[in-house]
Write a protein that binds this DNA or RNA. Sequence first.
DNA 1: CGCTGTATTGAGTAGGATCAATCTACGTGG
DNA 2: CCACGTAGATTGATCCTACTCAATACAGCG
Lengths: 237, 237
Amino acid sequence: MGRRPDLDWSHACRDCAVGTSAVCSTLDVTALADLRNQGSSIQLAAGQPLFHQGDPADRTFSLTSGVVKLYSVLPDGRRQVIAFHFPGEFIGFSPSEDYHCTAEAVSAATLCRFETGRFEQFARSSDEFARSRHERVARDLVAAQTRAMVLGQATARERLAHFLCDVHRRSQARPAGASGIVPLPMSRSDIAEYLGLAKETVSRELSALRATGIVRTISRNLLEIRDMERLRRLAIV
Amino acid sequence: MGRRPDLDWSHACRDCAVGTSAVCSTLDVTALADLRNQGSSIQLAAGQPLFHQGDPADRTFSLTSGVVKLYSVLPDGRRQVIAFHFPGEFIGFSPSEDYHCTAEAVSAATLCRFETGRFEQFARSSDEFARSRHERVARDLVAAQTRAMVLGQATARERLAHFLCDVHRRSQARPAGASGIVPLPMSRSDIAEYLGLAKETVSRELSALRATGIVRTISRNLLEIRDMERLRRLAIV
DNA sequence: CGCTGTATTGAGTAGGATCAATCTACGTGG
DNA sequence: CCACGTAGATTGATCCTACTCAATACAGCG
């Protein structure tokens, strides 16, 4: 699934891990080859930055493997993780000249890099591409609005439950089997900064979920949801 | 400013209060007339709903006057105001079949209503229109991400300061004079639900700002910023 | 001129932050 | 292969911000 048998074997997109789910999938073979000409592959080690807040927003990325976090930092050091991105998702849309936040690999990641200007060209030449891009941004917008509900109204318990369900769903998107296994490549601090909590609170609430048998912690960054039903009820959104 | 002298006098868009700033401004006269055929004008009294969470998302709106709030409600009654919308802004983009939140007039409002499907057609036929729409959604997305910072990291004082600056900037967009007057047509509860605070906290913090001479409260829903400098410093974002 | 809904102010409480002390996993080097 | 060092995670104790509940003030309206 997701492969493109009509592409030349030497074409890098042929074996793209996120094939059909990425924006690129709306392009025909010629257009793809064209876009690809300008795109190049990027490898990031865990912790490596992709771009910084304030950099000129002249690149757009398609994440093919790994997890990337977007965050911004206040002068006094407070940090908010805006989003975690999973394979198949896009990074780097910006309505202004500059990126408004920093992007950094959480785990080793590979990305496809495109020039934003070239992206714009394709949006003009392909209705399907433009529509797909718009839908993607609109989807991100709804996700951001859901986050307002979580950050504005939910308790610590509810935030964490929501987060676990969300990561489960999004990382589960492609792999087989509806197992309750959730990979958590990000640190507890990352999660805390994402949920607007202190890292100690994340730890405590995680322990509480463990105590009630809702989740089981396989290793530091691998967790099993044992009672999805109850977790969902906690998540509220 | 914002008028379209090349339009027929009978055409409603000619005197549109938000003329050049709305999405429609990217359309040429013929296209506009065409779009307009399908659009109609809407008048809402304060408190009247525009659409409800779960309604089919078959309408898109351009706000020409007044203020509209978007919100969603949890089963237990907790309510999050997602956004306040000001004249010139668009309402009703949805990546799914249904609206994901409720829209309601805060003050008397007038809107231009379009059929979403027809909107899509125009996006396909006009690059400029599609680009403008995309930019608008991308801008909304950045705003939503700024909100994550506010809701996740800011103190009550900072949230309120941020809110006042934001409303000042957005309502000040068209009117003349850089006065410090800020209209607050929404109730304290609305503000509280927008900022993820209790209404009592909003009241208290507002009183605190008044006590330090940063703002002056002209009437219940009219406020003057007397020291923009200090308010901005408090706002942080 | 009182009535009603909204806003403000007050008193007490609780949920989550902060500060601090272990504990654990993992990488490094002997 | 194991001992050690370090960074991240967990748990504990205390504090503080903002919430809740309650009383009062105020504005708009019949």
